[in-house]
Design a protein around this nucleic acid. Structure first.
Lengths: 215, 215
DNA sequence: CGTGAGGCGTACCGTACGGTACGGTTCGAT
DNA sequence: ATCGAACCGTACCGTACGGTACGCCTCACG
């Protein structure tokens, strides 16, 4: 099981990154628009070059997803001092980052592509997206949760459970509906409610796991 | 925007349903395995018949998803008498139905297919799955929530918000991880924890929205 | 200036698959 | 018994696309 491999920015030359950008654009424009010919034309390069650089279509797809997923870098959150206030602020920051990421067209495209890929026993892309999406958040959130527990701000038996609850409270049914192309859920529609949703999620999480409830 | 059309069981003849079963089997076995030739061979019918009955490949796909999605009928929940106990039991029932549905191979396949479809500006399948999945649950859960609110068992400003919170608490990151083919999340793995997850979700929901907390 | 590597553009090949055509068979209705 | 509709199986066509080959250009390097 080849897990997601770290991708330095030096992994691809600028020219190659231009190609990957073209590939991603085509993906976003139309999920199945990533044909080798189309990428070559869009990036003004020859198909032969594509095959030389990426091996085959799957290699190009993988490189594109990998490269793009890796640059979904959410800003780090200060956790030096752990007051209730700081914790709530951190939680809101996480929720905000998670939501804004998830509703982005690039993220939707990447997830759709990976899911399509996973439907064909090829789960490379699935792992890559998982690793750079939910798992990345988990890795960053968990230590904060545990620090808060040690500081007696939170109480939970299992940090994994706590993390997953947080994820559920934040994401709810938004992601699946966007992936399925729910027309009632436009991006601007969701964007407008981000702040209130973020606050609500943090509130609810603190209600469930906070030691002394909220402020 | 052709929304999901109600599908009676008389919509398709038994022979046609056999064809649709074959199509679904192929989909489950391998997401992209639904070729007209393969369906014809599997169902022991001619391609000409397929085209006569379903128009084209997309029609066959749509019929398959529609027919299958419509038979995901979750058992109704008794809501005649609304005690706290009965409410909790109803919530747990909903959570259980939702979870068991979501982790089923058929559901995963349908969602993957619809998402792939939605990636190509064809959002028919997306709407069908939405309508028979999240929306079906919502339609059934909302009146119960509102009845419980009227009975002063729950308190929430907005039944839509309450429903979505419930959804998030139940589903968490399970669906997206399954769709992405997360190997760490086998079906049996999830199945084993359903009962405790269901109880936890109901507890948390009642903590957040219950008027007098839990029993 | 010569040369060779890298890369562009295009033409080309093979295959898989959507869609059509057609001969042969079953079967119910008259 | 006859007829025709429905349907099976197979062969066939056209196209799209993955992958390869090749001619030509550019440019760094000697």
């Amino acid at each position: 099981m080849a897990l997601a491999i770290k991708v330095n920015e030096e992994t691809f030359t600028p020219r190659q990154q231009a190609v990957l950008t073209a590939a991603l654009d085509l993906l976003v424009e139309n999920g199945d628009g990533l044909t080798m010919t189309a990428v070559a034309r869009r990036a003004s390069c020859s198909k032969e070059t594509l095959y030389k650089w990426f091996g085959d279509r799957d290699g190009l797809l993988t490189a594109t997803v990998q490269w793009q997923a890796a640059k979904v870098r959410m800003p780090f959150v200060d956790r030096s001092h752990l007051s209730v206030k700081a914790l709530r602020s951190s939680l809101e920051q996480f929720a905000r980052d998670l939501l804004t990421t998830i509703i982005g067209e690039v993220s939707i495209t990447l997830n759709r592509t990976a899911i399509t890929h996973a439907a064909q026993e090829k789960d490379d892309l699935g792992n890559i997206v998982l690793e750079n999406g939910p798992m990345a958040i988990r890795r960053r959130l968990k230590p904060i949760l545990e620090a808060a527990r040690d500081a007696r701000l939170l109480r939970f038996p299992n940090s994994e459970e706590a993390y997953r609850t947080f994820y559920g409270l934040v994401v709810r049914d938004v992601q699946i509906r966007l992936l399925l192309g729910d027309k009632a859920l436009t991006q601007s529609n969701v964007e407008a409610n981000i702040e209130s949703d973020v606050k609500a999620a943090a509130d609810q999480f603190l209600t469930l796991y906070g030691v002394k409830a909220n402020s």
